[in-house]
């Protein structure tokens, strides 16, 4: 019988690099170049609209401008306010609802899947129908308020309320994310630990704070960090819901960057602001990555 000849054409090493190559090239081309160009442009006075005007090197002036600009600081303050409020509300709601979902009832899985859906929807569409529902005169929200005897609220026209309008919409969309992760965290806790606590006479609250919460903390922290990062860079929901308004009351840093770059076309300045945003996100992300790595090490130990 003739020996079957199956040529081993590629070594594992060759296969490995062959598999990695396209991804790497694409990422280098689509990430590294824009990144370098962002850094480069951030040192120039330059506008894509006036390409004929030569770019002028101005050092760190673009950065200095934003860091000393009151208006920009107010954008940061608003962004921070939004992030802290929205994320903490979603966190408590999410953990709470996931906890309630530990109760078994008919149709639990179906309903659980259903309430997770909002986070998968397009932020543009979410912004769209919340804008519709927040309408002062004929919106559903004010109608519901009137049912319980509350006066109509100018949700999108009053700066205080517009902050809350964005928080409500963001909470509607992203609480499911915390619910999903908290649920995963809770179901990862071995049943025997609860049984031990039952036998040891722990009450519901004692169990929650001494068993459930600390044991699900690693995953909950992941949820919190991801939500911080995502809500900090949130842009499209604002774009659709408030357009940054009224005036510039709900204009986040991302939004200001968008306007600087694509409404005023101050490319150089926008690049500098982009860099500032990037640095903050990279900072947050590296906390996240470091945390993940330390978790991985703990697990393998």
């Amino acid at each position: 019988m003739q020996e079957r000849k199956i040529p081993r054409m590629f070594s594992d090493r060759a296969v490995c690099y062959f598999f990695l190559f396209p991804t790497l090239v694409l990422l280098l081309f689509l990430l590294v170049y824009p990144f370098l160009s962002l850094i480069y442009n951030s040192f120039f006075r330059y506008s894509v609209l006036r390409a004929a005007v030569p770019a002028k090197f101005i050092g760190f002036n673009n950065y200095l401008f934003f860091l000393t600009d009151d208006y920009t600081w107010r954008r940061f303050v608003f962004t921070g306010k939004f992030v802290l409020l929205a994320v903490s509300i979603q966190f408590f709601l999410g953990v709470g609802i996931a906890y309630l979902f530990q109760t078994k009832f008919k149709g639990r899985d179906v309903i659980f899947t259903m309430i997770l859906m909002p986070m998968m929807l397009s932020p543009i569409v979410v912004g769209l129908f919340w804008k519709y529902m927040f309408n002062t005169e004929w919106g559903l929200v004010n109608y519901l308020l009137s049912l319980v005897g509350l006066p109509a609220v100018d949700w999108l026209g009053n700066p205080t309320y517009s902050l809350w309008a964005t928080i409500i919409a963001d909470t509607w969309m992203w609480t499911p994310f915390t619910i999903l992760l908290a649920m995963a965290a809770f179901s990862g806790i071995p049943k025997s630990l609860y049984e031990a606590a039952d036998v040891d006479g722990a009450s519901g609250a004692f169990k929650f704070f001494n068993v459930t919460l600390p044991l699900s903390a690693p995953v909950l922290i992941i949820a919190l960090l991801l939500r911080l990062i995502d809500s900090f860079k949130q842009f499209d929901l604002f774009y659709a819901l408030t357009g940054g308004g009224p005036g510039d009351a709900t204009q986040t840093v991302s939004f200001q960057l968008y306007k600087t770059a694509f409404q005023y076309f101050y490319t150089g300045e926008a690049s500098a602001l982009g860099m500032i945003l990037l640095i903050i996100i990279i900072g947050l992300s590296s906390i996240f990555i470091r945390y993940l790595t330390s978790l991985g090490e703990k697990q393998s130990a």
């Binding site: 071995p190 025997s192 630990l193 049984e195 031990a196 039952d198 036998v199 040891d200 006479g201 722990a202 001494n210 068993v211 600390p214 044991l215 903390a217």
Partner: peptide, 21 residues
């Protein structure tokens, strides 16, 4: 009665010790 009311103690097969404490 619930386990706690019976004042019983149990040792579990895989110990059921809290890893965070």
């Amino acid at each position: 009665q619930k386990p706690a009311e019976r004042n019983v103690a149990m040792v579990f097969q895989f110990f059921a010790l809290y890893p965070h404490l």
